[in-house]
């Protein structure tokens, strides 16, 4: 198996930190240290718009399209500690004048490292060097964002947040070497419970991604500065049936509010140095990138055995690769060279 380069998106003048592909429309958004967000048509490969009106004063570190809504919109997180929301309320996506800044969200004290929308588009999570994760409730038109909960369970920078594709479960990765999972409380929807701590990585956890199989949370992959990718499996989900002590505050009934997770396996080690991004595809494959410039794709043989089917060095020349995403059987990578590359798995 090999990767073939389909297209290279150029234009950023500084490191590209993250990308996002719209779940329904052929839209690709990329963000960079050049403080701009570029939006491309993934089919024609044409640049649609550069979102850049000085709304951010520092690096744009993260971006994610909202999965729902009448019109496409996205959230951008910046090292300037704010989040901006952009959208296109008109029918013509290709007209750059239709893309407007809809909101600026303030609250974090330091650099924002990650933003992510829940599957239903109701919640936006953001994480920061200030060690916190904020959960914002969004309205349909992206006009108002109300902070409904602030998670302060991590002891260090929170590097990345991602939601499960069907459940309101959030996974956060941190400089404190852990991944934590949070679930919306069954009785108080504005309360978010820390249902599991995944410990074992021996360095900053840079990212995580849920398995895309099924409706419920099954497994999670996490990538770390320690050069490993770990696969975690849920054994027993926190009791979601009403129980006798259901009227007690959530802090007391900790036992019933804990998920049971175990480390299932560590993927074959091939990266040298930090692994900045991991992505679990709908095809079941896992892909990873990092400081060593390698794109690695792993295939599961059985529950504890994974095989490396692709390991491609120098995918962005001698530069580091910050982010990888699946798009069907294609991959999108973003590098320190400012380039965004679209790859196809050649069987």
């Amino acid at each position: 198996m090999s990767l073939s380069l389909v297209h290279t998106f150029t234009g950023h003048t500084d490191k590209c930190w993250a990308t996002s592909i719209h779940s329904k429309l052929p839209l690709l958004a990329t963000v960079s240290g050049d403080r701009t967000c570029r939006v491309y048509n993934l089919e024609t490969k044409r640049l649609i718009v550069v979102l850049d009106d000085d709304s951010h004063s520092k690096t744009l570190s993260s971006v994610e399209w909202k999965p729902t809504g009448e019109f496409p919109s996205l959230a951008i997180g910046s090292f300037d500690s704010t989040i901006s929301i952009w959208g296109n309320e008109e029918a013509v996506l290709e007209d750059e004048d239709n893309w407007t800044l809809m909101a600026i969200i303030e609250g974090h004290e330091n650099e924002i490292k990650g933003v992510s929308w829940s599957h239903d588009g109701v919640y936006l999570a953001s994480c920061s060097r200030d060690k916190s994760i904020w959960i914002w409730e969004a309205d349909d038109n992206n006009e108002e964002f109300e902070c409904v909960f602030v998670v302060q369970e991590h002891s260090q920078d929170v590097k990345h947040v991602t939601w499960h594709q069907h459940e309101n479960v959030l996974a956060s990765s941190s400089y404190d070497d852990t991944v934590k999972l949070f679930k919306q409380d069954d009785y108080d929807e504005d309360d978010w419970v820390n249902v599991a701590d995944l410990t074992g990585h021996e360095g900053t956890v840079w990212s995580s991604d849920f398995e895309k199989k099924g409706e419920r949370v099954t497994r999670l992959s996490s990538s770390s500065d320690d050069g490993t990718i770990r696969i975690w499996k849920i054994l027993h989900a926190a009791d979601d049936q009403p129980s006798i002590d259901s009227k007690l505050p959530s802090t007391i009934k900790t036992d019933t509010n804990q998920d049971m997770w175990e480390l299932e396996t560590i993927l074959p080690i091939i990266h040298h140095g930090p692994i900045y991004s991991v992505a679990w595809g709908e095809n079941g494959y896992i892909a990873s990138v990092g400081s060593d410039g390698r794109i690695v794709v792993y295939k599961e043989l059985n529950s504890k055995e994974w095989q490396i089917i692709i390991s491609q060095p120098h995918s962005h020349g001698v530069y580091e690769i910050n982010n990888i995403k699946w798009h069907g059987d294609r991959l999108i990578t973003a590098g320190d060279d400012g380039l965004v590359k679209l790859w196809e798995l050649a069987l």
Binding site: S61, N110, K159, P274, Y276
Partner: peptide, 15 residues
């Protein structure tokens, strides 16, 4: 050591 080799922290410091 951790701080000096954290890519994001270094990038942010440079801004």
């Amino acid at each position: 050591n951790k701080q000096l080799n954290d890519k994001e922290r270094v990038s942010a410091a440079c801004e």
